[in-house]
Amino acid sequence: MFFAKMIDRLALYDLHRKRSKDKHFSAFSLNPIDKDEFYKANAADVAIMLHESRKNYLAGHFSYQSLIPSGDPVNDTLKGEVFLNKNDIDQPNVIFVHGWRMDSYDRIKKIFHDRIMNDLGWNMYYYSLPYHFEREPEHSLYSGELMISANLNRTVESTRQAVVDLRAFIHWIKANKTGPVIIVGVSLGGWMTNLMATLETQIDIVVSIFYANRLSYAIWNTIPGKFIREELEQHGVTYEDLQTYWKITDPSQAVPKVNKDHILLISAAHDQYVYIEDADDLWESWERPERHLYNCGHAGIVLCRKKLALETLSFIRKRLKQPHQ
């Protein structure tokens, strides 16, 4: 336990060496919002550009314009990586959603990519969250700085943009591919995946790894959110205020629309980024879908790659009723 927490704290020290220099706070105007209406989506107009052949795959990028424009042209153009099986007949479609402040897909790829490409042949899509990667504006200090911040409205609108655009992408896949849709989220991507599960009926399987539940809890109580909390407190925002303002982003406020037997939650017992108490709240509120609890910290994303891959892919195969290879 001590070793796991120490690794996380060292990583967090390094994380905060790069932090916001500008103040982001913006007040929040609270109006009653219907969740289904707020996150409503239609199919996106997706362009697929394939420019490389790898083994039995064609690799390239997908892109489309955001359905919820933020006003920043860089952020409002989505671009992700795509790997399509050349014999794309009823292949499952796996969408990977990355974590906060990641600046590449490498961590996720090192867990799943080669195993899927070499052994399974599934189609793979790597989705970029708002203000990350190529969507990061020039004035942003780090990837994801403008997605989650003390700007209360922008954080909610960024969440809405992420959810609506991801739902729109899923609708496009369902309209253009015949295989099931699987969504795998890691860290903040797990939170996004969980929120998607409460909204989208066209997702067949959900896997959420080292996920956050309530964004308000994560910002107020964990080390990654401490500087955002400081800025909020400087402007008189209390924890109760924040819970109210960001309630519409909480996955535990609703039951999943995905079959509970097709949901896998994976948590780290000693996680210093995402506290287990918050992860437990989601698990309980969803009436305990299958969960695996690892004896590690958040760094287990790197240290437990093989275990994460084996257990995740085994779970998916069973739900797809595919034999082990």
Rank of each mutant, 00 (worst) to 15 (best):
N31H: 15
K40G: 09
N221T: 13
L84T: 04
K5V: 13
R317K: 10
I266Y: 10
A162I: 00
A41T: 03
K226V: 11
L265F: 04
P92E: 01
N87G: 02
D103I: 14
Q243D: 06
A59K: 06
L141G: 05
A212G: 14
I48G: 10
N213K: 06
G190I: 07
N75M: 04
R288W: 11
N221Y: 12
A175Y: 11
I316Q: 00
G99F: 08
S267A: 11
Y142G: 07
K321M: 14
N176E: 12
P137G: 08
W172R: 03
Y142N: 04
S314F: 12
V181F: 09
R229M: 05
K55C: 07
L242I: 03
M102I: 09
F227V: 00
L188S: 12
T244M: 00
V206A: 05
A197F: 00
V97W: 00
Y273P: 03
H113V: 13
Y275H: 11
K109T: 11
H98R: 02
P251H: 06
C304N: 14
D90P: 08
H171W: 07
R54Q: 09
G189K: 02
G300F: 06
K21G: 11
E37W: 04
F210C: 03
R115A: 14
L320P: 04
D45E: 15
K257S: 08
E37P: 10
I116N: 04
D72G: 07
D241W: 12
N221D: 09
Q253T: 15
T155H: 01
A41G: 00
W122D: 01
A175E: 14
N123G: 05
L264F: 05
N56I: 09
L320W: 03
D119W: 05
G144N: 06
D72T: 04
R160G: 00
I7N: 06
P224Q: 12
A59D: 08
P92F: 02
A27R: 15
H113Q: 10
L84A: 05
L264H: 05
A41S: 07
R115C: 11
E284S: 09
A268S: 07
Q322K: 14
S20K: 08
S53C: 10
N123H: 00
A175K: 15
F28G: 05
D271Y: 13
A279K: 06
G236Y: 10
H262K: 13
G121S: 13
T238P: 07
A47V: 13
V206G: 01
R305K: 13
G225K: 01
D34R: 09
N85Y: 14
A175M: 15
V258W: 01
P69R: 05
A268G: 09
Y273G: 01
E52A: 08
S252Q: 08
H324E: 11
L166N: 01
V207E: 00
M102R: 06
T178K: 05
L67G: 01
K226Y: 12
W220Q: 04
H262Y: 12
S314I: 02
R229I: 02
L129F: 04
A299Q: 10
S208K: 04
L195R: 02
S285I: 09
